[in-house]
Amino acid sequence: MQPITLKTGQAPAAVGPYAQGVRLGDLVFCSGQLPIDPTTGNIPADVEGQTRQSLANVAAVLEAGGASLATVVKTTVFLKDMNQFALMNAVYQECFGASVPARSTIEVARLPRDVLVEIEAIAGVATEE
């Protein structure tokens, strides 16, 4: 089984030597997504806007691999300031609804482009039942 490198213009290009995502079998691994609007290159100013944009970028990469936010089994959230956890968490819950995946949230000293949040995900490929 060979991994398939995912690439979509609906999410920002990788800022280093890595793939936006990789599909292997029925799993999609989404690299950490920064809150960069793929069309304008803009970054929202607050953690709520950055969380929303990061999750939109995650969704775009997952869709390129045949998955979606509904099939996410695990996320990792990298947060610049744990004092903003509640603000990030409110948007996160809004995006995932009642079907939330397993998650780790880690406070970090610094993120690329000095953003406030970065989110990565692992999802199953959506199947028709």
Rank of each mutant, 00 (worst) to 15 (best):
G16F: 10
R103H: 13
G9C: 03
T8G: 10
C30K: 00
A126E: 14
T76F: 00
T75L: 09
G25Y: 08
A14E: 03
L24C: 12
K7P: 03
Q20R: 11
G66K: 13
V108I: 13
A90G: 02
D81R: 07
G25L: 03
D114L: 10
G49C: 07
I106H: 07
P112Y: 05
T39P: 00
L79N: 01
A56H: 14
N57Q: 06
S99N: 15
C95Y: 08
E48A: 14
V125L: 12
Q2W: 05
T8Y: 13
A126K: 14
L6P: 05
S68M: 11
K80S: 13
L55D: 09
G16C: 12
R110E: 14
P3I: 04
P38V: 03
P44F: 04
G49K: 11
F78S: 04
V73W: 08
T76S: 05
R103V: 10
L34P: 00
P38D: 07
F85G: 00
A59L: 06
I43N: 07
D81H: 13
P101N: 05
A90L: 09
Q84D: 07
K80G: 06
L27C: 06
A56L: 13
A45H: 06
N83M: 04
V22E: 00
A64E: 01
A59Y: 04
E118P: 01
N83G: 13
V28K: 01
T71P: 02
V115G: 10
L111W: 11
L62K: 12
L116T: 07
V47T: 12
P17E: 06
L24A: 13
T76Y: 01
A59H: 10
Q10D: 15
P44S: 09
A121Y: 02
P101T: 06
D46L: 00
S99Q: 15
V58C: 07
L87E: 15
Y18D: 03
E118C: 15
T76R: 04
Y92F: 15
V61T: 08
T39L: 05
Q2P: 14
L62F: 12
L6S: 09
G124K: 15
D114S: 14
V100I: 15
T75I: 14
A86M: 13
T8Q: 10
T127A: 14
E48F: 02
S54N: 04
V28P: 08
L111E: 09
A13L: 14
P38A: 05
A13W: 10
V73K: 13
L79D: 05
L24P: 00
F85C: 00
V117Q: 02
